[in-house]
């Protein structure tokens, strides 16, 4: 209580984007499981799963537009990019923290501020995620949504199986990302601290 203070870390548009994305991604993974493994999974009919997957896909794409608009519109996008000078030492420090120091109860070497929200490991993960994996998944998803209309582009990429392979590998990646991301979110000063902050916008700083 002594030196605790609240910092406004997550602005409202970011929180809206985050939770729409979270629910959307979980639903895409669940319907995606149904679509790929219709012989094993039977949560929906395949027809329902495809319809749902398509609608949710568009919601997630639209939501990505919200993320782009907010971060590029406000210039806050720079929080995703590391400072070259401190990048390597910070990465090593952060890895040591997650791998060793966290178990000893040592403090997190990264101090969250609105302009420096992510530690260097988060920056790497999120840059890959938001600038490569998400767009790639959205593009391949769009191509697979209307195979006939986008046949030309699908063939340019090497055929339907190549496009599907990218989409499926990323589907597996996002499936496990949701699990790992949720687990890492419990590594705040209390297990629910980061979850709470993503609703209220305020993180406690110690």
């Amino acid at each position: 209580m002594d030196n605790k203070k609240l910092i406004y870390i997550h602005p409202l548009p970011v929180r809206i984007w985050h939770w729409i994305n979270a629910v959307g991604m979980v639903m895409l993974v669940v319907t995606g499981l149904q679509i790929r493994f219709a012989d094993i999974v039977s949560l929906f009919t395949l027809e329902e799963a495809i319809t749902l997957h398509n609608y949710i896909g568009f919601v997630v794409i639209g939501n990505y537009g919200l993320w782009v608009a907010f971060y590029f519109g406000t210039g806050k996008i720079k929080i995703y990019f590391p400072t070259p000078k401190t990048f390597l030492p910070n990465t090593i420090k952060q890895m040591k923290y997650y791998g060793v120091d966290i178990f000893k109860g040592d403090p997190n070497p990264h101090h969250m501020t609105p302009d420096n929200k992510f530690n260097s490991l988060q920056q790497q993960a999120y840059v890959g995620l938001m600038f490569i994996f998400m767009p790639l998944q959205m593009i391949t998803g769009l191509l697979l949504w209307r195979v006939n209309d986008f046949e030309k582009y699908i063939n340019m990429l090497g055929g339907i199986k190549i496009v599907d392979t990218i989409h499926v590998l990323l589907f597996f990646f996002f499936s496990i990302f949701i699990v790992v991301h949720s687990y890492l979110a419990t590594l705040g000063h209390t297990p629910l601290a980061h979850f709470k902050a993503m609703f209220t916008g305020f993180e406690e700083s110690h």
């Binding site: 679509i35 790929r36 055929g159 339907i160 199986k161 590998l169 597996f172 990646f173 990302f177 699990v179």
Partner: peptide
């Protein structure tokens, strides 16, 4: 992948991808 232009969703899926996916999920 010898038939790159034919894919019936789920029906003719490449099993190797499922094994890779399972390994990714198990590792994570």
């Amino acid at each position: 992948y010898y038939l790159k232009h034919f894919y019936a969703l789920g029906g003719t899926r490449i099993r190797l991808l499922d094994q890779i996916g399972l390994a990714m999920i198990a590792a994570g």
